[in-house]
Nucleic acid binder design. Structure first.
Length: 393
RNA sequence: GUGGCUGUAGCUCAAUGGCAGAGCACUUGAUUGUGGAUCAAGGGGUUGUGGGUUCGAGCCCCAUCAGCCACC
């Protein structure tokens, strides 16, 4: 069996857990942060830099690779692992998100989606079956079902219709994958949708876990611009419904506080463009918040981005030098900042995992948030209630 | 030396004699299944200098300084 997920330790005080996910290209300790390499590259980072960061798995994207260089080409080149020369696990997103977020000109029908390329306007069509074929050609260890990610805000009726279609597509993805694909070499994850409506989320979980059987699941449709409290609330009532013996992946998250919140709710896997995107604009994540490398105050700052950080950038370069690189638009700056941010999140997951083993994750989270100068959302909620109660008196 | 043109924000330039502006740069934020993109907010001026005309001058007049061009 190429795929196996084992929970090694459960927290007594929350749903947090540490596990290990086995794939054909190696083991993934969880919780894990997966850097995003949309176009078969984690922007600006070489494979050696990713090894130095010790990224266990990276993402790529079906929509983008389908358009360029094309999935047949990648298959001819021996698959995505060989093409990139990345020997570790890979995950490909289905492209559902891109079809719905990048293409204003698209037509959805029961069968699939017709959309226009954001590159040249050419017309293309994705169906659950065609996406499974593309993902098979790419050859990632974990592949995602073709879903529809409803934007925020969306009406109940629209969200429900999109959800039902996503469910029918999920069944078709699973059928195509199990019948014609390589289920022993690629694990297909189902995607829970339902927007921010509790009954729709519950229905989605019920359908995907009871009517169908995926080796892993993800929560989709989160972090699409909704207020943070709504995001947390949705995750909090959805995650506990998921099967405990399978890996749970929240797509598109995120920030350090969101990662810790996810872990608290039993989430095992995360991916996000945040660390690499903000790095390219000179913003670095540090234990007490943010450092903006463009800030004038850093002109003569000899310290690393973050004291005590083990990343290559912090081991070798000063804030003053990095600020200079960003102001002069030197490409090395993008790379050094990306190294730091990805390292920070990967390392945060390492520390969280260790804290779970040490039975102190909840304390670890509170301590991290205090340093990070973020008030835990449960405290904020309590304060809000207290204020409201006061007001009523 | 003579004639002409030009002097407005750090830069490039707008502004009928009627509230001195834009782009870039600068400062500070934002960025969540990736466009190195983008967005938001902010600071900045004795309009070269000194006089004059006018209710009112960046604009008209005089002088002066500086830069550029042409000609002795």
């Amino acid at each position: 069996m190429s795929f196996k997920f084992d929970v090694l330790k459960n927290s007594d005080k929350s749903a947090a857990r540490a596990g290990i996910l086995q794939t054909p290209h190696g083991e993934i300790p969880t919780p894990v942060f997966m850097p995003v390499g949309t176009q078969a590259t984690v922007k600006t980072l070489s494979r050696d830099e990713l090894f130095a960061i010790d990224a266990k798995i990276i993402l790529s994207n079906t929509y983008h690779l389908y358009l360029r260089p094309g999935h047949e080409l990648i298959a001819e080149m021996g698959g995505l692992h060989r093409f990139i020369n990345w020997p570790r696990p890979l995950l490909t997103d289905s492209g559902g998100f891109q079809v719905f977020s990048l293409g204003p000109l698209r037509k959805i029908d029961e069968e699939g989606v017709t959309f226009k390329s954001h590159l040249d306007g050419s017309s293309h069509r994705f169906t659950p079956e065609s996406v499974m074929k593309v993902e098979e050609n790419l050859g990632a260890d974990i592949i995602m079902a073709f879903d529809e990610c409803a934007p925020y805000p969306s009406e109940y009726e629209y969200t429900q219709a999109a959800l039902n279609r996503t469910h029918r597509w999920a069944a078709r993805c699973l059928e195509a994958h199990n019948r014609y694909g390589k289920p022993d070499q690629q694990a297909l994850f189902g995607i829970v949708q339902g927007g921010f409506f509790q009954d729709l989320r519950e229905e989605s979980v019920r359908f995907l876990t009871q009517e169908l059987d995926f080796p892993g699941y993800s929560l989709g449709g989160l972090s699409v611009g909704e207020p943070k409290d709504i995001f947390y609330e949705t995750m909090a009532y959805t995650a506990p419904l998921m099967p405990k013996e399978k890996p749970l992946y929240v797509m598109g998250v995120g920030s350090p506080e969101d990662l810790l919140e996810g872990i608290l709710n039993g989430v095992d896997m995360f991916d996000c463009v945040l660390p690499t995107r903000i790095a390219r604009n000179g913003a670095c994540i540090v234990k007490d918040g943010r450092v903006n490398l463009r800030n004038a105050t850093l002109a003569r700052d000899e310290r690393p981005i973050m004291e005590g950080c083990g990343c290559y950038t912090c081991q070798n370069h000063s804030r003053a030098y990095l600020r200079h690189l960003f102001r002069t638009e030197e490409i090395l700056g993008l790379r050094l900042a990306s190294i730091h941010n990805v390292y920070f999140l990967v390392d945060l997951m390492r520390q969280a995992r260790q804290a779970i083993f040490d039975a102190c994750f909840e304390e670890f989270r509170l301590e991290f948030l205090a340093n990070f100068r973020i008030i835990p959302h449960e405290i904020r909620a309590k304060n809000r209630e207290a204020r409201a109660a006061n007001h009523r008196k």
